[in-house]
């Protein structure tokens, strides 16, 4: 199930956010060997303080098994700063209809291979469906994502390969990192859904205090 947690509803999901920071520590610090700051077993950076939106995937037991962080490219974001080397010194894209996706990861410790509910490819697909549907509802049509070659391969295999790349891959820790371009379009979402066999609404129901009904009462 997918939760979108941003500065508006963060207070309702403190545990979910902590679990996500722990997952990021396991993936980016331990597995990929990136130079990230880990405190109390959690990986957090200055971009987490800039009110990003987190797309968080939980398994049937409620554990965080995947996540992605979204920021607007019009404002401060990682490719304009920390990840600038990926762009070979070129200025980043800047458009209100393009979002940046970073810290995209899934929990390879608890997930299996294959395509079942508890597989790497299912959770990867679920996170992307969540992010792209959220982006589409926001009028966003494209995303530039910082990913590693393994994620790149997983996406290509799931009929969801990037339509382009920016700059060139750079070594980061134990792996390379690349800036990949993806469209937030019904076509791409349909391809991911078909590959992963996900037909249902991936989003968690809205919290109770959010009233989606028209203003009336």
């Amino acid at each position: 199930m997918i939760y979108v947690v941003d500065a508006l509803n963060a207070a309702e999901y403190p545990e979910l956010l902590e679990d996500m920071y722990r997952l990021r520590a396991r993936v980016f610090h331990e597995r990929l060997g990136w130079e990230v700051v880990v405190k109390d077993g959690m990986e957090r950076d200055c971009f987490d303080d800039l009110d990003p939106a987190h797309v968080i995937s939980t398994d049937a037991a409620g554990r965080v098994v995947g996540c992605m962080r979204l920021l607007q490219t019009t404002g401060p974001h990682m490719l304009a700063d920390i990840f600038a080397p990926l762009l070979d010194g070129e200025p980043p894209l800047r458009a209100s209809t393009i979002w940046e996706a970073t810290r995209f990861c899934v929990d390879t410790n608890v997930l299996d291979r294959g395509r079942a509910r508890n597989s790497i490819s299912y959770v990867t697909s679920e996170v992307m469906i969540g992010a792209f549907e959220y982006g589409m509802s926001a009028g966003v049509t494209d995303a530039v994502a910082v990913i590693d070659p393994i994620m790149d391969r997983v996406m290509k295999r799931s009929g969801n390969g990037p339509y382009g790349y920016l700059g060139s891959p750079k070594q980061m820790g134990k792996v390379q990192a690349l800036a990949a371009l993806m469209d937030c379009s019904p076509e791409r979402i349909a391809r991911i859904r078909e590959f992963a066999g996900i037909e249902h609404d991936v989003f968690s129901p809205l919290p109770e205090d959010v009233v989606p009904a028209p203003f009336a009462a």
């Binding site: 508006l8 009110d51 979204l70 979002w99 959220y134 509802s137 926001a138 009028g139 959010v210 203003f215």
Partner: peptide, 17 residues
């Protein structure tokens, strides 16, 4: 106070009453 905290457009129905 609140919409500025979001990266996505915020429908006013999302605000607490």
């Amino acid at each position: 106070q609140k919409a500025a905290l979001s990266i996505a457009p915020v429908d006013w129905s999302r605000f607490e009453r």
